[in-house]
Every structure is written in C-alpha cells, then in structure tokens.
C-alpha cells in the first residue's frame, strides 16, 4: 500500500491515528528503515509469522482503539519459540480485552527483536506559524525528564540536521560512552532529512513519533512509530 492509500483507509474509517504497522509502512515508503512488522489476525498466523521473521520476536496488540499498548498489557518481548508466542498471544488478548473492553482488535503485530542500540527519538509536529517542524532527541530519561531535544523547521538540509544533533546536550552519548558503540551520525542526519522531506511533501500529517529509534554504528532502525493525521 502506498502512503495515500494508507491515509485514505484511515480517513474512511474516521481515524486520525494510524496503527503501528500503517505508520511503519508509510515511513518505510519515505525511505526510513523500520523494523519488519506484520499483522497476525489470529494465534496460528502469529506463530507462522514468528517462524518466518525468526526468533526472538515481539508481539504487540494491534488496535486502533488502544494507543498505550504497554499499559494495556499488550506488549510481549523476547519471545524465543512457538510456545512462547502462542502463550504471549493469549495473554495479550486477555489483558487487552480486560483493559479496553470496547476496543476493536485486529490482531497482533509481530516483529523481530531489534539489535539494541542508542535509544533515539525523532518526530514531527505542526506549528501554527512555522508549519511542520521535525524533532531530534535522545530517548528514555533524556527526552522525558531532561527534555533534551532540538527542532528544525521543515524543510531541513543535512547541515541543519547536523546542527540539530550537535545541539543536544547529551550528544556525547552518540559518540560512544563507556563501551557503548557510537552512533552513525551521518545516517541519523539522513533520517532527519528524509523525515523532513516526507512531511514537506505529504499534507495532512499532524504528528509523528518514531520512538524509539535504535542507533547503531552502521545505521539505525525505527522500532516503534506513530502517525497522527490532521
């Protein structure tokens, strides 16, 4: 499905929030490397997709009505074999239905466990005056408590992206801290530019969250993503 079809489907269903799978499809189409994430409508399909993707895998509840998946008990990680996947599927369904009885559930998303890296957040919001604005920050406590993020007004070029990353107070973490592998900064810059180009060309997006992105010394991957339409 191309981006337009994804957006149209959501609008027809009177949704402004895309599912994780839809969001990743759209971002993949925009040239961003997202973890391979597929929808399983039932337990058997979840097991089959897990076999295909390769263990360990992550299962997440897929429902347009459930935005806080972890809070609803809808996320199980590091599932190492078929039995664990099937068990996880049952648990997810049970707790999601308990937490959100009215939610319409389309199944679970199945994705591989991403190779760990430095946790990054990238995103976009629409400012009433400046239009779309992209954001970069370090994930976890850095974004939540220290609000260590920087912005760029769309469109940005690679130089702007470099300055955005350089502006982060915790930027030293990106160059390898206590044995942590350093991040591929040039790759992150390219990601920001691609995100900027995407929102610049694509009307109708209100907000994007790519959180977390795992940054490695040879690229990065979008592990979770959310897109909210206007």
């Amino acid at each position: 499905m191309n981006i337009e079809d994804i957006f149209n489907k959501a609008r027809e269903e009177k949704r402004t929030v895309l599912t994780e799978i839809e969001a990743k499809q759209a971002l993949t189409a925009a040239g961003l490397n997202c973890s391979d994430t597929r929808l399983a409508a039932d337990k058997a399909q979840a097991a089959a997709l897990s076999e295909e993707i390769g263990y360990p895998v992550v299962l997440k509840i897929s429902s347009v009505d459930i935005t806080h998946k972890s809070d609803a008990g809808g996320v199980k990680v590091n599932l190492k074999d078929k039995a664990e996947v099937e068990q996880a599927y049952d648990n997810i369904m049970k707790s999601a239905q308990a937490a959100c009885p009215d939610a319409q559930i389309e199944g679970v998303s199945v994705q591989g466990m991403a190779r760990p890296g430095i946790e990054i957040i990238m995103g976009m919001i629409r400012d009433a005056n400046f239009g779309p604005v992209v954001m970069f920050g370090l994930g976890g406590v850095f974004v939540e408590i220290l609000k260590d993020v920087s912005f760029g007004v769309v469109p940005i070029d690679k130089n702007d992206a470099a300055e955005m990353i350089a502006e982060i107070k915790g930027k030293k973490l990106l160059s390898g801290y206590r044995g942590q592998e350093p991040a591929d900064i040039s790759y992150l810059e390219d990601m920001l530019v691609k995100l900027s180009d995407f929102v610049d060309k694509t009307p109708g997006i209100a907000e994007i969250d790519m959180n977390p992105v795992f940054a490695w010394n040879d690229g990065a991957v979008v592990v979770d993503a959310r897109i909210i339409l206007e």
Binding site: D127, N129, F130, V133, V149, S150, F151, G152, V153, I156, D160, E163, M164, E167
Partner: peptide
Amino acid sequence: ASDTKIVEAAIRQ
C-alpha cells in the same frame, strides 16, 4: 508569541 524552542530552531537555521 511562538513556542520558544521552535523560534530558537528557526533562528539557528
């Protein structure tokens, strides 16, 4: 007034 961070980003850019 515009949001501080966005304005600062704009000035830098």
